[in-house]
């Protein structure tokens, strides 16, 4: 998902003293009992490291995620859409802000995390490295990208780490309008002129597969999931969430009168005997493309990082001015 790059393996566990193993057992017992872990609580170093990486990747994704949609704020075709889109992209900024703050409770600073993003060392969701080419992309992103994000984020509201869980509760509350505004855009286009409907279909064609990739590599090749599941950071596997997303989206696309760009898509009834119960099987995902995007070779990776770097660099004098003024005022008050 927004933290899909977590599938890199950690260093092999070192041999640890008995005391630490005991602490770890107590920690795991608390997690098993669904107790929340708070910032000052003892936690295994690997738990802290995993969380910092996951939360900061999530934060980076929200912030970089402002750019593809931000690309259309100035071109929103009605004042109502313009206000909704600006409010929506602003929300994503807020999400990034809440999440950086949650990561900071683990002993890193926003400056450090920002530096990791700007230098290209940190990962963020692959989806934001695709370009937004028409107004219909605002519909497709809200409907599909935010839809996929919500699916992933709702279980995170119960994450074992308290500050992350609380940030996610706030995020999920705000997300609720994002998907609806996207779907409404799609619906309006689909009920509009033939050109508009074609625009909607074309956007869906481009965004569908990248959205399925958002959930991360298939479970079979995902290495982090076990430990994250034990720590109750992750509650559903990549494939489970992906399937849930496909099942939810197929009827929504049908309602729009749009075709999902997957010739292999077919309904597979489950064993219940009820023919309406089952799942939508989908075709092969192009994981080679996914890997390339994560490696920095997506159509927009360079532009996205350049835009964030530009904002950061051009804002430096402003942040310095505010700090300098605060320092002067303290000095004046002390005098």
């Amino acid at each position: 998902m927004y933290t899909q790059a977590l599938n890199a393996r950690d260093d092999a566990p070192a041999i640890r003293p008995a005391e630490e193993l005991e602490q770890e057992a107590r920690f795991q017992a608390r997690v098993d009992a669904e107790e929340r872990i708070e910032a000052n609580d003892w936690m295994p170093a690997a738990y802290r490291k995993t969380l910092v990486r996951q939360i900061s990747q999530h934060a980076h994704s929200e912030i970089v995620g402002m750019l593809p949609e931000g690309n259309w704020i100035t071109r929103a075709p009605s004042l109502r859409r313009k206000a909704a889109l600006l409010a929506k992209v602003q929300d994503e900024c807020g999400h990034g802000l809440y999440l950086y703050a949650a990561a900071e409770t683990l002993g890193v600073t926003r400056e450090e995390l920002t530096e990791q993003l700007l230098s290209g060392r940190a990962k963020y969701s692959s989806i934001f490295n695709y370009p937004t080419l028409t107004w219909a992309d605002m519909g497709a992103i809200g409907w599909l990208v935010d839809g996929a994000a919500i699916m992933n984020q709702i279980p995170l509201c119960r994450c074992s780490y308290g500050p992350y869980a609380r940030a996610m509760i706030r995020v999920c509350k705000e997300e609720s309008f994002h998907q609806r505004q996207g779907y409404e855009i799609m619906l309006t286009l689909c009920r509009g002129t033939p050109e508009q409907k074609a625009m909607a279909q074309e956007a869906l064609n481009r965004w569908w597969w990248p959205c399925l990739m958002m959930f991360g590599p298939p479970d079979a090749s995902s290495q982090h999931s076990d430990q994250s599941t034990r720590w109750k950071i992750k509650r559903f596997s990549n494939d489970e969430l992906r399937q849930k997303f496909v099942d939810a989206t197929v009827p929504q696309a049908e309602y729009l009168g749009l075709t999902l760009p997957d010739p292999d898509l077919r309904f597979v009834p489950d064993e219940s005997g009820d023919a309406s119960k089952g799942h939508w099987a989908y075709g092969e995902i192009d994981w080679a493309e996914f890997k390339q995007i994560l490696a920095g070779n997506g159509p927009c990776n360079r532009d996205r990082l350049a835009a964030r770097n530009k904002a950061h660099d051009e804002g430096a004098w402003v942040r310095e001015a505010a700090l300098a003024y605060a320092g002067k005022r303290r000095a004046r008050q002390a005098a």
Binding site: I73, V89, C93, K310, A311, G315, A316
Partner: peptide, 24 residues
């Protein structure tokens, strides 16, 4: 609204968008 995503700090990105939304 042109600032959205490009402001000097996240906090100011939020602020400028709020003002923009009021004006809209």
């Amino acid at each position: 609204s042109e600032w959205c995503g490009h402001a000097p700090a996240l906090e100011e990105d939020m602020a400028l968008a709020n003002i923009g939304l009021d004006l809209l």
